[in-house]
């Protein structure tokens, strides 16, 4: 039985109490990591949770001080979700947010409840069943919670890949299967800086658009493996989410890779249209906005209006084009390099 408002402070207080109470528990391991513009202290209740999530992030530079904390805990067997109005039996996502707090149950997608408490700059990831955490979530942990942490900044996590050359970055948006991962990992192999192949964070300020990695991971389909033998050592697991075999990569051990932002010079909507050579073409910003907003809103529910405003600012801040990489990725990279210069 759920009603709106009148006494809503009771539930909001429950979220706040949950974060405070969780932070007071003992934790088996802690890491200081960098996720886009944030330095975060992640505390794991046990070593299994650390093994699940910790290597998906770049470590923060030794001198960094964490500005946020995430406490990752696993529920006991049969333990209910610790917030009124939320049930672990609910298959759909459930979101409750206010200016100060953000609570998201992931439903069928993940056995996770995220609670972000903005005033204390602390968050809880409550995992109901460790063995049910899917590979995609291990490759990009806590993404909706990170997005909620970005909300009071110009930064936004977006579904896109990105590469940089000499500090100047290209963002690749577009539908799945258009070669975003192939392009970004081919760029890594060719000496570009790999920023991300799935989700990256963008600074939407018009005078200084930038892009940074939230995660140190990539996910290869089987048909891409032969192309990147140099990344074999980065493989951590083979996963089978959604009946698709993926090679999960942790890139944090690759010395030339790191966190930190690169200036965004170009936003390309990658879409194959049968060109026999790399091709740039005009595209309407509305088309790009609709596609990017869709993936952003579904993967990271909440705060739709301010996040849409950030996306819109991003599309005004960087030149936008449609890009067909053509059949040869090497040619595509050469075309991108020429375009940057």
């Amino acid at each position: 039985m759920i009603e709106a408002k009148r006494g809503g402070a009771i539930t909001e207080a429950a979220a706040s109490d949950l974060v405070r109470g969780t932070a007071d528990r003992p934790f088996a391991a802690s890491r200081i990591v960098e996720a886009g513009p944030l330095t975060i202290a992640i505390h794991f209740a046990d070593r299994d949770l650390e093994a699940l999530f910790a290597d998906a992030f770049y470590p923060a530079p030794a001198t960094s001080r964490a500005s946020w904390s995430i406490f990752v805990v696993a529920a006991g067997r049969g333990e209910p979700l610790p917030l009124p109005g939320f049930s672990a039996n609910e298959p759909d996502m459930r979101l409750v947010e206010s200016a100060d707090r953000y609570c998201l149950w992931m439903g069928r997608h993940s056995p996770s409840l995220y609670v972000v408490d903005r005033p204390s700059r602390r968050a809880v990831c409550w995992v109901t069943e460790k063995s049910a955490v899917k590979a995609w979530e291990r490759s990009r942990p806590f993404l909706p919670a990170l997005q909620a942490m970005f909300d009071d900044s110009p930064w936004l996590a977006v579904h896109a890949a990105a590469l940089a050359l000499e500090g100047r970055a290209i963002l690749f948006a577009g539908p799945g299967g258009a070669s975003k991962t192939t392009l970004s990992l081919a760029g890594l192999s060719a000496g570009w800086r790999f920023i991300g192949d799935d989700y990256v964070v963008v600074d939407s300020r018009e005078l200084a658009p930038a892009v940074a990695p939230p995660f140190a991971t990539a996910r290869l389909r089987d048909d891409m493996v032969a192309r990147f033998p140099n990344l074999a050592g980065a493989r951590t697991a083979i996963s089978h989410d959604f009946e698709e075999r993926r090679h999960e990569l942790s890139l944090r051990g690759i010395p030339e890779l790191r966190g930190g932002a690169a200036r965004l010079e170009r936003l390309l909507f990658v879409e194959r249209s049968g060109h026999l050579a790399p091709d740039f073409a005009p595209i309407r910003r509305s088309r790009v906005l609709a596609a990017m907003a869709a993936n952003t809103f579904i993967a990271t529910p909440g705060a739709k209006e301010p996040r849409l405003r950030k996306l819109s600012r991003l599309l005004m801040a960087a030149p936008v084009a449609r890009f067909d990489p053509g059949p040869r990725i090497e040619d595509a990279l050469a075309a991108l390099m020429a375009d940057l210069r």
């Binding site: 039985m1 759920i2 009603e3 709106a4 408002k5 009148r6 006494g7 809503g8 402070a9 009771i10 539930t11 909001e12 009124p84 109005g85 759909d92 996502m93 459930r94 979101l95 409750v96 947010e97 206010s98 609709a290 907003a293 869709a294 993936n295 809103f297 579904i298 529910p301 909440g302």
Partner: peptide
Amino acid sequence: LQGLLLVDPIHEASPAGWPFV
């Protein structure tokens, strides 16, 4: 977005505020 929301609904609290049990 509409297509994704149809297959993947997200239940949000009403604009009136947080749920109250």
